[in-house]
């Protein structure tokens, strides 16, 4: 069996219900579309999934989109975009985990992400949840090797001090080391 190359990215956004993944993957199997990677979450009662797929040339993309739409329902938002090879962000740097907890204020995610972006940092995973009082944000970011960590940490704290936000930037190996059973699996 050969693993196909990713040709497209398929996204679905719809009110959550049971059986969405089962129905979607059954459809992909039926069309002989290879499923290479999947990231799914439910956010405020909405189901969202991002799939990296290999679509055979015999399957037309518009047909694939229509069939998915019919499978999930008319309320769903379905997109299929072509995968561009070599489009990943190349960086000579290291991965850090950024965490922020504290009082929820409008614009905090924007403030933090702008500071990181200005230093050449790239968000590779982000979770943020805010209620009436508290915000919790966790992001994995790749930072260039020459970034001044001290200054970045100071800038993040300064920019969010009005919200009494506790922002920390820590190398991601710390979190692997404290959660991975085998230490040899901690990246060097």
């Amino acid at each position: 069996m050969t693993i196909p190359n990713p040709t497209h990215l398929l996204t679905v956004l719809t009110p959550d219900q049971t059986g969405i993944i089962a129905g979607l993957t059954a459809l992909l199997d039926e069309l002989d579309v290879g499923l290479l990677a999947i990231s799914e979450t439910v956010l405020h009662d909405y189901f969202t999934v991002l799939m990296s797929v290999g679509v055979p040339t015999a399957v037309e993309i518009d047909v694939l989109r229509d069939k998915v739409q019919a499978q999930i329902g008319a309320d769903a938002s379905v997109t299929v975009v072509a995968h561009q090879p070599g489009s990943s962000v190349e960086m000579d740097g290291e991965r850090y985990v950024l965490t922020a907890t504290g009082q929820a204020r409008p614009g905090l995610v924007h403030v933090i992400s702008s500071i990181v972006a200005a230093r050449g940092g790239n968000f590779v995973d982000l979770f943020s949840n805010a209620d009436a009082e508290q915000i919790s944000m966790v992001a994995e970011i790749d930072l260039p090797a020459d970034v001044a960590l001290d200054q970045l940490q100071i800038d993040l704290e300064h920019a969010t001090s009005h919200a009494a936000l506790h922002v920390r930037l820590q190398h991601h190996r710390l979190f692997v080391a404290t959660n991975e059973i085998a230490f040899r699996r901690v990246p060097t």
Partner: peptide, 16 residues
Amino acid sequence: MIRTDAIFNTIRMFQE
């Protein structure tokens, strides 16, 4: 990717 709750568990050890 590291699980969010695992990250917060580790953070808590240092912060609190």
